[in-house]
Amino acid sequence: MIPLSHYMLISAALFSIGIYAVLSKRNAIMILIGIEFMLNAAILNFVAFSKHDKFAASGQVFALFAIVLAAAAVAVSLAIILNVYKYYKTIDPTKIDKLRD
């Protein structure tokens, strides 16, 4: 039996990798991938905690929902990235600092 903490550690590692990617990558696509990492870390937690769930497999249902939502979110995000590229001719987030003004 694999203890819960192992799942947690993997999930944390995934999350951290995701955050690192979000914060440090200079490509919007890579950031998107980082976000997917973090989502998957959360999904992993849902699945792992569902074992201790009093109701039947609600964690897994949540996980499924999250996967669907993540797919939808990626689609929207890619569309935004495309539009950003169209407007700025770059997808490097450090170059896009219009928020400053």
């Binding site: 987030p93 450090t94 928020l99």
Partner: peptide, 13 residues
């Protein structure tokens, strides 16, 4: 206030 999304995120975290 750099206007960079990633910095803001970093601060948030």
């Amino acid at each position: 206030q750099t206007g960079r999304l990633q910095h803001y995120l970093l601060f948030m975290i």
